[in-house]
Design a protein around this nucleic acid. Structure first.
Lengths: 214, 214, 214, 214
DNA sequence: GGATAATCGAGACGGTACGTCCAGTCTTTGG
DNA sequence: CCAAAGACTGGACGTACCGTCTCGATTATCC
């Protein structure tokens, strides 16, 4: 068991594998939910900096000690809270073509990153760097779902023969969305629709004039 | 003036624009250097968490107040200290071909990210998310130099006609290195040579079978 | 009913009056004993600080809720556990003279206070200051027995005509042992045999040169 | 250096020896005073339990970190705060006779112990049992002063030839005041004027009918 | 002998305080 | 006049323990 060893209560993260522990003794789902909801509100209001453990405890009525029994760190709580609704934040695409689907996803994700939620996302991502416990939750509650959605498109593309053989889904996903994360984090350039489109186009068709020899 | 309004002392960051203020009164270069050197050592020993303001002050003999006259935040000091030597950390490439140069750069950067310095890099990047002052330093002392180096390769490629027209350098750079940053930060997959090669290949030749129509 | 209103199970404290309530419904003696024994061990190992409610519960297998049905507070459990064997810790004296008996008791008690058990005693005494419920148990299980033993000597002395008329047992006991407690608690001076002897002598014969006129 | 290694600011404790460190760099007296005053108020209002570190910090405006630089523990702050005015709480006695002076002191101290301040005193005394750092402050700021005052009376008595030779001041003090502390802490009997008088009388003239043979 | 009721183990929970850590500001002192 | 030294506030951290409470799973008497 990777992320925590504690129950999660209620809905499970989109993590394919049975990442989170089974409830041996049902720890109050109410408590878990209260904490998550309070955290979500705090994130919406003031981003990750506002979601301190004390604030979460105060707003949710869940004591700090209990929070630490449910999650390994405040980042983990925030990751779960933030990841809950994000499944729907970026809807799936079905434009009829693989290229279209992927390009649209890049555009939608870019817009998401450019939105206030994107700020929270970057704060969360940053927080996981020095918090391995939180990182597991972040991957489980956020990344995994998103990557799975894209992997599905990629799989469809493979079956259709649209995608280059030899390129696996992970590489494709990294290539399409890594650039957005790069911009989001360093802020060296803005996350505009044009930039997103350009990135998607470049990723799909390559940077060079030469055709791959394979 | 964005990053600080303070002198930087000694060597200038590779930031193209006149980002940093002119030394109106020469504030001790010795002090500046001492702080940077101490910080570099601390980063090497314990990463960004070790480079607290108190630690920097103690080790360098520079008082905290003085540090804040030279830099807007601790992240800024660390960014400068870390960026100093990083210019040489990834040597330029000249394989004879644009594709080769770019692929090699991706590989080298991937290895750098996978190294202990890569950890510091990610910590620094994470820190800039909630520290705009530090972010400016980070971009100036680290990113700008790297991007400039790749831009030069790209420019050469453009002149040689190796690269697809309509793709600007920024897009290309983001596409090539964004995926590495993505992996570095989320840790969803390891930063192996194979992954780097795969990313570079995919970026250069595109994800799809179809040829761009433009 | 002062100390708890709960049954005590097993052996009764040396409290003269019917201090502790009658069992309306028999509460397991086994449970009571288990808790007391576990607590005694914990006290021996780490003093009162080690005898937390959780530790007692864990070691004895008695749940916290049950502990609180048997005792009003953790101090009360500890007081009973500690008082159990302490009856024998300081044997009675019979030197043949009242002065000898009292002096010997002072010496023995001083040694007891100076021993590791003395530390626990002082911790317990300290704990009762902010725990009235525990205080009742402390008096019942510890003090009462000790005072009764001395009172017996005093009574014998009265009958023999050894002791000054008008001095009641309580005053005598306080005078003889108060100084030891004073030292034990404040630690301003060590609890040596010499000090104990000096105290006993001074108490028995008075501080002044003048003879009481009564 | 025993108690803290930190400066105390303002007035010095009555501790004879140079117990407290010399200020290498003057730490703000204002801060020290503010903390002490706030603590005194809190003690008066709610006793030691009310004088939590957070409460002291909040009321005094001195941050917790600073408090811990000035004192080793909350008990230490409270001891100093409480001890400040206690010098005057029990005035010196001068009845003309040694016996009178001592008896009066016992009575006054008994009344002090029986007062609300006495409760605080006992809480403080209890707290020092598990807080050696605080104990040093308690001895320095409270006990030392009181003992010194009695020792002066004793010295006078020695010079007058009123007191039994061979009884040192420490023994005398312990004998006179230990009984009061005993009662204060265990509460086995109330601290009445009669009891105090009886104790003083017994201490001064001895418990036995026999005259000391020395 | 089964119903009724309490006891009990297990341990989650809220609450309160703790003592620590670090950032960034402000003050004092010395050269 | 500037810089070193470092005191100071503020705020969050994660921990510890208390005493209460809610579960079911035993008992154990009483009808």
């Amino acid at each position: 068991m990777t992320a925590g060893g504690t129950r999660t209560g209620g809905q499970e993260p989109d993590n394919g594998t049975a990442l989170f522990a089974r409830p041996v003794k049902p720890r109050s789902i109410k408590v878990h939910e209260a904490a998550v909801n309070a955290t979500r509100d705090l994130l919406a209001e003031g981003g990750l900096p506002a979601a301190t453990i004390d604030a979460i405890a105060a707003r949710s009525g869940v004591s700090k000690a209990t929070l630490y029994k449910h999650w390994p760190s405040r980042t983990a709580v925030a990751a779960e809270a933030f990841g809950r609704d994000m499944a729907d934040a970026v809807p799936a695409s079905d434009t009829g073509t693989t290229a279209g689907d992927l390009a649209e996803q890049v555009l939608l994700v870019s817009r998401f990153y450019a939105s206030p939620e994107g700020t929270v996302f970057s704060q969360l991502l940053a927080a996981t760097v020095t918090d391995e416990g939180g990182a597991a939750y972040f991957r489980a509650w956020f990344l995994a779902g998103r990557r799975k959605a894209i992997a599905a498109i990629w799989q469809r593309g493979t079956e259709r023969g649209d995608v280059r053989p030899g390129v696996d889904a992970d590489t494709a996903i990294d290539l399409l969305f890594g650039p957005l994360i790069y911009r989001l984090l360093t802020g060296h350039l803005p996350l505009t629709d044009e930039a997103a489109t350009a990135v998607a186009d470049a990723a799909l068709h390559g940077l060079l004039t030469t055709t791959p020899k394979d």
